[in-house]
Design a protein around this nucleic acid. Structure first.
Lengths: 131, 131
DNA sequence: ATAAAGGTTCCAGTCACTGGAAGGTCAAGG
DNA sequence: CCTTGACCTTCCAGTGACTGGAACCTTTAT
């Protein structure tokens, strides 16, 4: 199957699939005309990548996860460790964003949002009172 | 004051300050030796930028906010709009990350994390049951 | 004289794509 | 046979917001 079909089946853009080949995540065969030829295995692998990426794993994590997936003698502990480390990163990010959100909410609520220039948001950016 | 002092006072790396000059956010004077010379005004502007960035505003938002800050005839509504749009973006991001986190948590919890190869995490990446 | 600690410019790399140019291939229709 | 259009190919450049490093200059202290 050509790249367009693989793209349709995995939901990944063709560009992204070519990129994944470039960085060695998948290696489709080639037809005589030079077109990439994807087997069901390739598509399965691409779908795996798409889902891992959708869960926020980095490309390097994906590489690791794929390797574990294809290693029948893997220890599930290794997979779990990757996932847990990633989850911690996400938690950190959520905490950061949550803090930003709270500050912004406070500032937005304090701002009249009318035609006058007085603005607690700008005042805070210029010189925050606390926290 | 030289760039190092400006960096210390604002908490921004010198590299970042140079970058901000590059993209036209601040324009320090120059001493005869070619060194950048920062006034208190410049430092104030940099600190403003640092705080806006810390709240997650993009550089372009920062540019807008700085312009509003320096425009005495601004309407606070304009500032508020920028902040609110940004807050919505953050909310979206938090929701995305939260969803990832929930899925990951479910998978991590289901995984024994021992020396055996069986792993619900990989199984889900290979072919998710639902959601 | 020299060494350390600052400053300068410019170029390349990060991450994970994405857009676009320039061109090759293939099936259908006139 | 020719063209049109939808595919496919490669390669290069750009994204955002820095960051690292090379090569070099200036200042201060010893």
């Amino acid at each position: 199957m050509n790249i367009g079909d693989a793209a349709t089946r995995t939901g990944l853009p063709s560009k992204t699939i070519r990129y994944y080949e470039d960085i060695g995540l998948v290696t489709p065969d080639r037809d005589r005309n030079g077109y990439r030829s994807f087997s069901d295995q390739h598509v399965h692998k691409l779908a795996f990548l798409a889902r891992a990426r959708a869960l926020g794993f980095t490309i390097e994590d994906c590489r690791t996860l794929l390797a574990l997936y294809e290693d029948d003698s893997r220890a599930s502990a290794d997979v779990r460790a990757v996932a847990q480390a990633h989850m911690r990163q996400i938690d950190e990010k959520i905490a950061q964003l949550g803090a930003m959100r709270d500050t912004l909410d406070r500032l937005v609520s304090a701002c009249a949002g009318d035609s006058r220039p007085d603005c607690p948001i700008l005042e805070d950016l210029a010189a925050p009172k606390s926290g």
